[in-house]
């Protein structure tokens, strides 16, 4: 059975916490590939994989709702929109607008310095000893416990302006929640969509602009 042991050990490792590292590696590698590749559709492809792997990391952080929202809105919506934009703006097949090598080198160096700065500052903090770690586990109810990834109800309650801790108490006022920002964001989204539709609408203004310009130059 020794020939079986490597793949089965691998599966066991994946199910017992290794999947996080696979997702992390995938997110990082695909993000680098986004920077390196020159074809914009390939960039979009790597971006899809990177965002999907990040959704996997969200799932591993017990944030199922955020992970699914990431998949639905980001990967399924925003990126489709981006690729749609690529198709609408491509003046030839497999459009490539190359950056100069010097720019890439400079960008890479600046990026590495920035990465070093961020990492050194993030790792120098002792996050573990900055308070109780159990806050995520102590809130809320559900069919699955919050510690197994069910944060839907807490999220919904937060949006409604309620705190799960307040529900049992006799407090007459609920803690301020996220209802107002939520409404503002939804109105914001609507306005933006209408604005985008207005800006992107088909119009023949090139002809008129040209004729005006030629009129001006003629006079």
């Amino acid at each position: 059975m020794s020939w079986l042991s490597a793949p089965i050990d691998a599966v066991a490792w994946l199910f017992q916490g290794g999947a996080v590292y696979v997702f992390a590696l995938m997110a990082v590698a695909c993000a680098v590939a986004v920077v390196v590749s020159q074809n914009v559709v390939r960039m979009a492809f790597w971006l899809i994989l990177s965002l999907a792997a990040t959704a996997g990391l969200f799932f591993s952080l017990n944030a199922d709702f955020v992970g699914a929202a990431q998949l639905l809105i980001y990967v399924g919506g925003t990126l489709v929109l981006l690729i749609f934009g690529v198709m609408l703006t491509a003046s030839g097949p497999f459009l490539q607008i190359k950056s100069r090598p010097g720019e890439m080198v400079l960008g890479g160096v600046v990026g590495l310095v920035l990465l070093g700065l961020i990492l050194s500052s993030a790792i120098s903090v002792d996050w573990a000893n900055r308070g109780p770690r159990s806050a995520a586990e102590t809130v809320g109810v559900g069919f699955n416990t919050p510690s197994s990834g069910n944060t839907t109800r807490e999220l919904g309650l937060k949006f409604l302006g309620a705190n799960p801790k307040d529900l049992g108490s006799s407090r007459s006022t609920l803690s301020p929640g996220f209802l107002l920002p939520f409404e503002i964001v939804s109105v914001h989204l609507l306005v933006v969509l209408i604005g985008a539709a207005y800006l992107a609408r088909t119009k023949r203004r090139r002809d008129t602009a040209n004729s005006e310009a030629s009129n001006l130059s003629a006079s």
């Binding site: 599966v11 066991a12 199910f15 017992q16 916490g17 999947a19 996080v20 799932f59 591993s60 017990n62 699955n144 510690s147 197994s148 990834g149």
Partner: peptide
């Protein structure tokens, strides 16, 4: 992963 799954 800490979640309850097939392998936990």
């Amino acid at each position: 992963m800490p979640r309850v799954g097939i392998g936990s």
